[in-house]
Design a protein around this nucleic acid. Structure first.
Lengths: 339, 339
DNA sequence: GGGTAGCACTCGCGCACGTCGAGTGCCAAT
DNA sequence: ATTGGCACTCGACGTGCGCGAGTGCTACCC
């Protein structure tokens, strides 16, 4: 019995099931695909595929349905990456290039993915740790508070208030601001820890302790994972297929989507290969509420990937299509952020 | 036939229906409530209530269910405001006072409402137009760009980049910043348009045109409604009761919740009475996707309300409970933002 | 006139039952 | 290795039926 044909059968099952949402039987397969053998032969292959754990029959005398493992095999070995249509390419390009600032880019990207994949779209903001510093602003506020505003190369603004031991010396702060910006412009935030002492010396000034404090605070702030943010769109797409694709309710999934921490962890786990698209199918997500979903994500950003985009949807979905969209949007994002 | 008892019957119907999710019949009513009359009498009252459009029977020989108008009457005339339990009060107080900054306050508030009401919670960020100015920061960036950072009394930071006609004169900018902050501290942003010319004169300085430009830009920026943001939580609560409470799918509702613009408009429409809780029931929301939902919202903030909090859920919900929670959270928010 | 009891009637719901057809597994034949 | 044939399983679907909740109406009572 031919191993190749067996995989062809699996591919056909996945494609038909994704298209029709109905368990697919041996006869239907021979009718809709050109496999060159009779239903009886298909049945033997199916039995083998079931034995191997790639498909299951929901009940006796129903057709077969792919398992997580079946989808995995499909994604890894059987699916061609679908080329995007001209219209899709154009939509991505024009929508993303029209954005006015970082927030707008992220917002447009997430809506775009949701619309093109009919799934829940997820876009992570470019991580502060990885992006370069454009400007630091220091503002004395009241007696002993210092407002630190950090502006990154990607246009993101973060603010943090410092409580000082001594009353604010406004002139010293003004000088410090100037020198800091001269010395630290273009600094990659991830490097800040290493070069801090150099900077303290370089900036000099009346109050090295203050410099150190400010730099430390900046570093601390940026290293907090909680600074990372994820934007979600298209939850309505989940609800549309809810009854059909989710055994119970979609509310655990919605809950998970509202938890920034969960999403960030999830995306972080998928970051092994930063630039390529990576896929988590069903129980491969160890996070219980998501065992009935699949997540397709890709890193984006310049050089070392700085963040991820992705799409989350039911097991039964058009993987080649989703992968194509996610990959394409990630590439456009990378290009735009670099420009 | 007593008008009072008729309303008692309506109240009983609403309460039972909310509690059991089943159409309520005349006998069940007499058993569960102390109305002092027989089922037959109740039937007459029910016929009258149906005539008046306050209840309907989903089909012959089923019990009655409240209509939008029935709920409206219940909310307006029949429900006592439920007092919050000690535990609930404590939860609200402790959670909100533990917040570290404005983002945290909003985040905690929205989660709190979602959890206590089992509905979708909505919290609008305090509007810039209405809140007072704490500080303005001006930073020259490159040759002819000026970065304007606005810090409000509520701790919100907004930034905007100005393109200047002439190259940046750093000294002039420094002087301007100082004078602007002296003159404009505590200014309510909504008033800025009116007093702009006074300020231009008061600030004086080398370049009145620049002052005017900066002030105009600030005013423009702040008057953009798009600056207003809404945070949503608890969408999972919708999904939980989806099958029972929504005729079709909840996905139109989820779509609406993702549209900031829609939510902002909705909240704006409910702002007639700024401090009191206001309720929109079913078709009273002219926005089609929300005709199967009710929204309870209240203004919060000091003096003139600066923003709104609310809860959105199915028609069939515990209105007194929701109202109590929304009102209470709004009050705590007001107190915290004032402090 | 408002309240009540009785009664006939309606109708959705759940259940049992039978039929249909898709799909399977196995076996003997090629 | 592939195939045709065949018996078998089982869910989906339609039908018929009885139950019970609930109604509206009418006659009656205070």
């Amino acid at each position: 019995m031919s191993e190749d044909r067996r995989l062809d059968v699996l591919r056909a099952i996945v494609e038909d099931y994704v298209a029709t949402r109905e368990p697919v039987g041996s006869r239907a397969l021979t009718e809709r695909h050109d496999l060159g053998v009779s239903p009886a032969t298909i049945r033997n292959d199916m039995a083998a595929l079931e034995e191997a754990g790639l498909i299951v029959a929901p009940h006796t005398s129903a057709g077969r349905v792919p398992t997580d493992k079946g989808y995995r095999t499909f994604v890894d070995r059987l699916s061609d990456v679908r080329a995007l249509s001209q219209a899709e390419r154009r939509a991505i390009a024009s929508l993303l290039t029209g954005a006015v600032d970082l927030d707008d880019v992220v917002d447009r990207a997430v809506r775009l993915i949701a619309q093109l994949t009919h799934q829940v779209a997820v876009v992570q903001y470019p991580s502060l740790r990885r992006s370069a510093l454009r400007h630091v602003e220091l503002v004395g506020v009241g007696e002993r508070h210092l407002l630190v505003v950090i502006i990154t190369a990607t246009g993101r603004v973060e603010q943090r208030t410092l409580e000082l031991a001594d009353p604010v010396d406004h002139e010293a702060v003004a000088r410090l601001r100037l020198r800091l910006n001269v010395a630290a412009a273009g600094l990659r935030l991830a490097d800040l820890d290493q070069v801090r002492e150099d900077l303290v010396e370089q900036v000099g000034g009346d109050d090295p302790a203050l410099v150190r404090t400010v730099l430390t605070l900046i570093a601390e702030t940026l290293s907090q994972e909680s600074e990372e943010r994820v934007v979600v769109a298209g939850t309505a797409n989940l609800a549309r297929s809810a009854r059909a694709d989710f055994a119970h309710s979609i509310s655990p999934v919605l809950e998970a989507l509202e938890e920034q921490v969960v999403l960030l962890k999830l995306l972080a786990e998928m970051a092994e290969d930063e630039t390529a698209v990576s896929v988590r199918i069903g129980r491969e997500n160890r996070y219980e509420p998501l065992v009935e979903t699949s997540i397709v994500s890709s890193g984006y950003g310049d050089g070392a990937a700085v963040a991820r985009v992705g799409a989350l949807g039911p097991l039964r979905q058009d993987y080649p299509g989703t992968i194509a969209v996610v990959r394409s949007v990630a590439r456009y994002l990378t290009r735009i952020l670099a420009g």
